[in-house]
Measured scan of single mutants.
Amino acid sequence: MTVRVDGVDYEFSSLEEAVRFALKMAKSKGAEVQLHNGTFHVE
Rank of each mutant, 00 (worst) to 15 (best):
residue 1 M to R: 08
residue 2 T to M: 09
residue 2 T to H: 11
residue 3 V to A: 01
residue 3 V to I: 05
residue 3 V to P: 00
residue 3 V to F: 03
residue 3 V to C: 07
residue 4 R to K: 07
residue 4 R to N: 06
residue 4 R to Q: 06
residue 4 R to G: 01
residue 5 V to L: 05
residue 5 V to N: 01
residue 5 V to Q: 01
residue 5 V to T: 01
residue 6 D to C: 14
residue 6 D to L: 05
residue 6 D to Y: 06
residue 7 G to I: 02
residue 7 G to E: 03
residue 7 G to D: 05
residue 7 G to Y: 03
residue 7 G to Q: 03
residue 7 G to R: 02
residue 8 V to N: 04
residue 8 V to S: 02
residue 8 V to H: 07
residue 8 V to M: 07
residue 8 V to T: 05
residue 8 V to I: 11
residue 9 D to R: 06
residue 9 D to T: 11
residue 10 Y to Q: 01
residue 10 Y to L: 02
residue 10 Y to I: 03
residue 11 E to T: 12
residue 11 E to P: 08
residue 12 F to H: 00
residue 12 F to N: 00
residue 13 S to V: 07
residue 13 S to F: 09
residue 13 S to R: 09
residue 13 S to W: 07
residue 13 S to G: 09
residue 14 S to P: 00
residue 14 S to I: 03
residue 14 S to A: 03
residue 15 L to H: 08
residue 15 L to A: 08
residue 15 L to V: 11
residue 15 L to I: 12
residue 16 E to V: 09
residue 17 E to G: 02
residue 18 A to I: 03
residue 19 V to E: 07
residue 20 R to G: 04
residue 20 R to P: 00
residue 21 F to L: 02
residue 21 F to V: 01
residue 21 F to P: 03
residue 21 F to K: 01
residue 21 F to Q: 01
residue 21 F to C: 12
residue 21 F to M: 01
residue 21 F to Y: 04
residue 22 A to W: 05
residue 22 A to Y: 07
residue 22 A to M: 07
residue 22 A to F: 08
residue 22 A to H: 01
residue 22 A to Q: 02
residue 23 L to Y: 13
residue 23 L to Q: 12
residue 25 M to V: 09
residue 25 M to F: 04
residue 26 A to I: 08
residue 26 A to Y: 05
residue 27 K to S: 09
residue 27 K to A: 12
residue 28 S to M: 14
residue 28 S to R: 11
residue 28 S to Q: 14
residue 28 S to K: 12
residue 28 S to G: 08
residue 29 K to D: 06
residue 29 K to R: 13
residue 29 K to C: 15
residue 29 K to I: 13
residue 30 G to A: 07
residue 31 A to F: 10
residue 31 A to Y: 13
residue 32 E to S: 14
residue 32 E to I: 14
residue 33 V to H: 03
residue 33 V to D: 03
residue 33 V to I: 10
residue 33 V to G: 03
residue 33 V to N: 03
residue 33 V to K: 03
residue 34 Q to W: 15
residue 34 Q to H: 15
residue 34 Q to D: 07
residue 36 H to S: 07
residue 36 H to G: 09
residue 36 H to Q: 07
residue 37 N to H: 07
residue 37 N to W: 04
residue 38 G to H: 08
residue 38 G to C: 15
residue 38 G to P: 10
residue 38 G to T: 04
residue 38 G to E: 07
residue 39 T to I: 15
residue 39 T to K: 14
residue 39 T to R: 14
residue 39 T to W: 12
residue 39 T to N: 12
residue 39 T to F: 12
residue 39 T to P: 09
residue 40 F to C: 15
residue 40 F to H: 11
residue 40 F to W: 10
residue 40 F to M: 14
residue 40 F to P: 10
residue 41 H to N: 08
residue 41 H to D: 12
residue 41 H to E: 13
residue 41 H to R: 02
residue 41 H to M: 08
residue 42 V to K: 07
residue 42 V to C: 15
residue 42 V to Q: 07
residue 42 V to F: 06
residue 43 E to S: 12
